[in-house]
Amino acid sequence: MALKASALKVGDTHSERVVENLSRTQIVQYAGVSGDYNPLHTDDVYTREAAGYKSVFAHGMLTMGLTSKMLTNYVGDGRLTKFGVRFTNQVWPGDTLDSTATVEAIREENGQKLVDLKLSTKNQNGVEVVSGNATARIDG
């Protein structure tokens, strides 16, 4: 279900709620599969008492993964050519995140139609936690 250039215009948006009330368990689940067991994500005692944060927080890469879910639901599977993000604020247990892609350009490169997207993931307070860009192959 790929996007079609003929049905897209600059400024179009697609939004999804990518997590509701993020659990510490999901953060640990991500730690286990990614291999990143940093205690800042998995160990509340260390994070509060040794590192000086209020609690564990999500891996930036978990937030990137949550954002990617919205992105691939929008552009289709195996369609991305580029995907990049900046982690602008921490994501905490209990956060609810909404991700949005906005069409910035529809163009053609070597005969392949492409869409450039601006990405933003915000928490329940409207604070941006991830900003980014992606490019995907689309149909004519």
Binding site: L40, Y53, M61, M64, K82, F87
Partner: peptide, 11 residues
């Protein structure tokens, strides 16, 4: 606090 992840980009 040790290292944090600031950006990640894939091609």
């Amino acid at each position: 606090s040790g290292g944090l992840h600031a950006e990640q980009h894939y091609e």
